[in-house]
C-alpha cells in the first residue's frame, strides 16, 4: 500500500465510550483524559470500522481508495 490512512478525531464530540479502542483490529486508538486519541497511525489499514461504529460522529478516516468488499444481504 503506497498511501497511508489518516484519522481525524473531533475531541469536542467524543464522549469517551471506548468503542473505537475495542473494535480496532490493529490497536490504533488509546484513551487519554477520557477522549479517544490515535496511538499509532502507522498500524492503520483504513478498514473504516471505527468510523462506522463511532456513535458520536467524532472519527473521520481518510483512507486511500481500495477495492470495496460487499456484504451479501
Amino acid at each position: 500500500m503506497s498511501e497511508k490512512a489518516s484519522i481525524e478525531i473531533n475531541e469536542k464530540w467524543c464522549k469517551g465510550c471506548e468503542i473505537c479502542v475495542d473494535v480496532c483490529p490493529r490497536d490504533v486508538f488509546e484513551m487519554r483524559n477520557f477522549v479517544a486519541k490515535v496511538k499509532d497511525i502507522d498500524k492503520c489499514t483504513g478498514c473504516m470500522l471505527c468510523e462506522q461504529l463511532c456513535p458520536d460522529f467524532a472519527i473521520i478516516v481518510h483512507a486511500p481508495e481500495k477495492k470495496k468488499k460487499s456484504v451479501s444481504v
Binding site: C17, P55, D56
Partner: peptide, 16 residues
Amino acid sequence: FPHIWCAGCGDGIALK
C-alpha cells in the same frame, strides 16, 4: 452537535 445520546449508545451508529 454533539448529540444527546449517552456514551456507548447505539443510536448514533444506527443514524450513520
